[in-house]
Amino acid sequence: MSDTYTFDTKDLKEIENIIAKYPEKQAAVLPVLWYAQDKFGHTDSSVQKLVAETMDIPEAHIHGVVTFYTQFYEKPMGKHVLDVCTCLSCQVCGGYDMLHYMEEKLGIKAGETTPDGQFSIQSVECLGACGYAPMLQVTNDKYVNHLTREKVDKLIEDLKAGKKPEFESMKMPQHVNGSDK
């Protein structure tokens, strides 16, 4: 399995386009790692090696970068990664309650993955949705705001059914109260 990761011609073309955005190819390390993680679901050591070889950048450098940034998964994660914010506003608005509820519901602790490989839960730092606390992010993508137990139940049902959350536009209260031209 570990050596089966490859980039096809389309990927290589795309990576070339990414690199072209920068005066030096090393700058493309983060976007290319993102690209690889989107494709393979993680950036473990074999993906790191692939990225290093594709970009002709020392593997140790890629390794250092991957381990520095928390959003790169150093090992395969569950199909859905639930990043529950427990920082500051989320903390005081019940972020830990939500986290513990999910832990209980899925039978795993933060940092673990369910045995069926469907869900991973992580307790994460501020996601920049403080006004909509408590909240979580699904697999580095959409936010689910104003969490309640019911919302969590529904989210997990939906995800199990293959339905990913939609982007939720959090209106500015000023706009809601005032006239919307």
Partner: peptide
């Protein structure tokens, strides 16, 4: 102003 925490209508206000 990004206002969060224990207020009735949290959110971003200008």
């Amino acid at each position: 102003y990004g206002i969060s925490g224990h207020v009735n209508r949290p959110g971003v206000y200008e």
